[in-house]
Amino acid sequence: MRPDQLGIDLPLGKDVHSIRRRIEAMEVVLERSFVIPGINRPVGLDSIIGLVPVVGDIIAMGMGAYIVWEARNLNLPKWKLLRMASNVAFDTAVGAVPVVGDVFDFMFRSNTRNLRIVKKHLDKHHPETRVIDQ
């Protein structure tokens, strides 16, 4: 199925604005898909699939690596890409530890950190893609 058939409006282009929207959408899915009732803390797939030993952490790492790959398509400097990759690697390594890693996944949001790096770069070098957050 195509994304538009699923009710998802993601641009498929290779332009800066389309890539930014895809990265933002992936961050929402991984970090803020829904809110836990009672504590009003948003969580996403990264925390949920991280509960599955080994396989869940590998899948979460792959999804986080997608954000780094898209950032590479935006021609971010290598040092920023390395910083983003280290965020994903650190999240994966600590997240792989049973119980402690699951709590860590809940608190450390590597994908949100990586989105912040991408937004800061784009706001400086491509201000026309800036979106006012609500």
Rank of each mutant, 00 (worst) to 15 (best):
W79H: 13
D46R: 10
K119E: 12
R113Y: 11
K120A: 12
R72S: 14
I132V: 08
S110D: 05
D123G: 09
N75R: 15
I117D: 03
R2C: 11
M61C: 02
M1G: 14
I58C: 06
I48K: 02
M61Q: 08
V131L: 14
A25W: 02
K78Q: 15
H17A: 13
I19K: 00
E31Y: 06
G62W: 11
K119C: 09
D102N: 10
F104G: 05
L12M: 11
K124T: 15
V100L: 11
R116D: 15
I48G: 00
L82F: 15
N114T: 05
R113A: 07
D57T: 15
L115D: 03
T129R: 06
M63D: 03
D123F: 09
I49W: 03
T129G: 00
N87C: 10
K120T: 12
F106M: 12
P53M: 08
L45I: 12
P77W: 07
L6P: 00
R41E: 13
D123P: 02
I19H: 02
G7A: 05
S110I: 05
R20W: 01
P37M: 05
G101M: 04
A85S: 13
N73Y: 10
I48T: 11
I36E: 15
L82A: 14
A65I: 15
T129Y: 05
I58K: 06
L12N: 01
L51R: 06
A85N: 05
I117E: 00
M107I: 15
V103H: 03
I58W: 07
G64W: 06
I117K: 00
V131T: 12
D91H: 10
K124S: 14
H126T: 09
R22S: 07
I49H: 04
I49F: 07
V94F: 05
L115P: 01
L81N: 03
V118T: 07
T92W: 10
W69Q: 11
G50R: 01
N73G: 14
I117R: 02
G62V: 13
I8D: 01
V99L: 13
N114G: 06
G56H: 01
V52Q: 04
G38P: 00
G56S: 04
L122T: 01
R21G: 02
M84C: 09
Y66D: 06
T112H: 09
A60L: 04
Y66P: 00
L10M: 09
I23L: 08
M63W: 11
P42C: 10
M107A: 11
R83E: 15
K124P: 00
V118E: 01
L6H: 14
L81M: 04
N87R: 01
T112I: 08
H121Q: 07
